[in-house]
Each structure stands twice: as C-alpha cells, then as structure tokens.
Amino acid sequence: MIRVALKLAYLGTDFYGFQRQPNLRTVEGELLGALEEAGVINNLGQSNYSIAGRTDRGVHALGNVVSFRTDKMPIINQINDLLPQDMRILGSAQVSMGFKTRFAHRRHYRYVLYNGQCEEPLEIDKMQEAAYLMEGTHNFFNFSKRNERNPIRNVESVMIKPLNQIYLVDVIGESFLWNMVRKMVAVLLGVGKGEIEVGVVEKFFDPQYNPSITPMPPESLILMNVFYKGLQFKEDEYAKLRFLRGLSDQCLNHQRMVAVTEEMIKVLNMD
C-alpha cells in the first residue's frame, strides 16, 4: 500500500463546483468515478482520500491536488482516458503515508480581469498600493463568509500586471477563506475605479468595520498551483498536451460565439 498525490487541472465552466453533489456534474464526482473504474480506488472510505481545495462552481484549476492510498502507482493516462475532455490529471507523486493534502505550504490563485468590463482605465498604481496593504497577516473576516472559525490569514504577495486587454491579479498565501480571493479582487477593482480610497483598505481588516463586499464572478478565477515542501510532481507532457488541445478547442468555440453575438448586437443597434 502506498499514498499517491495527483495534480489536477480542469475548466470549471460546465461543472457545479469541485465537491461531489447528488445528480450534479462535479470535478470530484468525475474524478472518483474514473479512479474507481480504473481500479485505483476500490473503497473510498479506506483510501483516506483528501483534497487541497474545494473550488466553487465556475472556478478553474491548473494545479489542484488530491491524494489517497492505493496498491500501486497509477497509470495517469489510463485514468485520463476515463475523464471528460475538460479535466485532466497533469502529474503525480508518491508521498508519505502521513501526507496531509490540505496543509499546503502555499497556494497560488490568479484572477483575470477583462479590460472591457471597465469604462475607464484602472489606476494600477493605486491598486498595487492597496494590494501591498493586503500582504502580511490580517483578520480577513470581512473578506469571508463571516462564519469562519479563524479569519486570520497570511498573504505572501498580491501582484497586479496589465497585459493587453486584461489585468492579471496574482494572490499567493498559505490558505484562504471561502470567497476571500474574489472579495480581495473586488476591493482592488473598487480602488482602481476610484470608488474606494487606498487609505480605507486598512479598515477592511477591522472586524468591527462592516463593509459590503460583493465577490467577483468565479468564472475568472484560476487555482494556479498548490505547493508542498519537498514535493515535486512528475509532470506528464502527453496529458498536458491533450488538455491544452481541449482548451484550444474551447477557446475557438468561444471566439466564434463572440463573433456571432457581436454581429447580432451590431445589427440590432442599426435598427
């Protein structure tokens, strides 16, 4: 008996989140079904299966992690053949029997802000100034569901990078509360639009302060990677290539749909 960790990528668009739900298509449901069909897991309760993070509906991933006990090292592409095109196992590693999947060294999230949703150019300098205030150890009560037992979190870095028609917001830390990253981005966007003063951001860490923060849409959030000290995944280039092809097809279909809807809008505006 050994313990194995798998690095998982998925496009969250057509999933009802990560966690299993009755009669709904979820990442975990598809994964466990494939693992059982491949004979990698025969008894879920005895496998000590665990995950790094339960991403919400619509959230994507390039490096979520699951681990479990099994008889031998699984063949990655045998499992991938049983998975749908919008998810793939990209890497694997044998870990110690006491490996704790949830206790990662750090997590990296990336939020993709589309420039077209902003009427005026964002004030990036002020956004980055506010982002620096979010770094370090703070009480993120106002950035959470507000029933978390411990809202104290340490954020290692928050960086904003303009790139053509988008802004990339990279947030790295050990762990995050539910909706925390999307609410952080919402505040940063408010600063960039001039709706929130940079100096006010520090007040958001006061649990007595009661701001209303609407989290940004989940469809633009990617769990980029989950890191563990001393753990190096063996990447599978073939699996990566297959997932890349699937994403390219999705992108092409989306571009076609954008072209069609833009033409329909143009015609309606001419009437």
Results as ranks from 00 to 15, higher is better:
N225K: 11
S175C: 09
D86H: 08
N164S: 14
N48A: 07
Q165F: 11
P162F: 11
M180W: 05
Y109M: 05
E148A: 14
S175I: 02
A34Y: 03
I172T: 11
G194H: 12
V191M: 10
N147H: 13
I76Q: 01
A52C: 13
P217V: 07
E235T: 15
L223I: 06
V171G: 10
L8H: 03
R110H: 10
N115W: 10
G17C: 07
F205E: 03
G33S: 09
K7V: 01
K161H: 13
S220H: 06
Q46H: 07
E123C: 04
I41V: 00
R3Y: 00
E36A: 02
E235M: 13
K126W: 06
Y49P: 03
L83E: 04
E202R: 15
Y109N: 01
H60M: 06
C118R: 09
N42H: 11
V40L: 09
M257H: 12
I51V: 15
V65G: 01
T70G: 08
D71R: 15
F15T: 05
Y209C: 14
R3E: 02
K229Y: 09
P121G: 05
R69C: 05
R57C: 04
G12W: 02
H254F: 12
L32G: 00
A239I: 01
G246I: 00
I160A: 05
I265K: 10
R182M: 10
Q128K: 00
I89K: 00
Q94P: 01
L35N: 02
